[in-house]
């Protein structure tokens, strides 16, 4: 049976029930205005339904659907990597690697309780871990890896006044245990939910709450005196 759907897109491959048509219809609900999202978690049910539809389309090989998923998650993934490696060029490389890997693997993606954003972050985290393990990272401790606020940083005046410099931020995070480091970046810098962080770290939600608590306590102790919050 040939099914023609709303987008004027006709599926010629014989299929008794075209699931793709449904996903295309769903993915067109509330398309973004072009602005990239800050958070990794699609908060409202409509948005999460749209992500679901896009993922299903991407699973069937729809490149444009994958492109839209990229638009949704690129900021979150990039931010996670950037605050974990502390270098813009490196963060860009690893972000590219993350999405390239995801592009090749999205056909095998299964939900099984895992959020798509968490899945991407897991790929990114593995790449970051590999990078830190590799000989290259040990040799390349140069001024390049010390983060600085680039021109692309969306910093308003108030943020510039009240926020921490990326260098201070990176160094404070580096002082944490590896798992606490990942947890704190995912939760508070990448904007992931407890559930997404738990999925990305393969830990329980309770464990993530404990991790973030310990991480914040350590951070509070390691922050420069002048930046430490008052009682």
């Amino acid at each position: 049976m040939t099914v023609a759907h709303s987008g004027g897109f006709a599926v010629s491959t014989a299929a008794p029930f075209d699931v793709r048509a449904v996903w295309i219809a769903l993915s067109e609900i509330g398309a973004p205005s072009g602005e990239s999202r800050r958070a990794a978690a699609p908060p409202d049910p409509e948005e999460s339904e749209r992500v679901h539809a896009l993922v299903e389309l991407a699973r069937t090989g729809d490149a444009e659907a994958f492109g839209q998923l990229y638009d949704i998650y690129v900021s979150s993934v990039y931010r996670f990597i950037y605050y974990r490696v502390g270098s813009r060029p490196l963060a860009e490389d690893l972000t590219s690697d993350t999405f390239m890997r995801a592009l090749g693997a999205v056909g095998r993606f299964t939900w099984q309780g895992k959020d798509f954003g968490a899945w991407l972050t897991t790929i990114a985290r593995n790449l970051v871990t590999d990078h830190h393990k590799s000989a290259r990272s040990r040799l390349e401790v140069t001024s390049d890896t010390v983060p600085d606020r680039g021109l692309t940083t969306a910093s308003s005046e108030t943020e510039a006044l009240s926020g921490l410099d990326d260098r201070v931020l990176y160094e404070a995070i580096q002082a944490l245990a590896p798992e606490q480091r990942d947890c704190v970046v995912m939760r508070f810098m990448s904007g992931m939910s407890i559930a997404q962080t738990a999925a990305a770290l393969s830990r329980s939600e309770g464990a993530v709450k404990q991790l973030q608590l310990r991480a914040l306590r350590n951070l509070a102790a390691h922050l420069p005196e002048e930046l430490r919050p008052g009682p």
Binding site: Y83, T153, S155, G163, V184, V185, R187, M189
Partner: peptide
């Protein structure tokens, strides 16, 4: 105190990928 630290992290982490990239 912990909420303040977390808030500081969230407000400071403003890095965005370069639009060209």
């Amino acid at each position: 105190e912990l909420v303040t630290v977390a808030d500081l992290l969230a407000r400071s982490a403003t890095a965005e990928p370069d639009p060209k990239f």
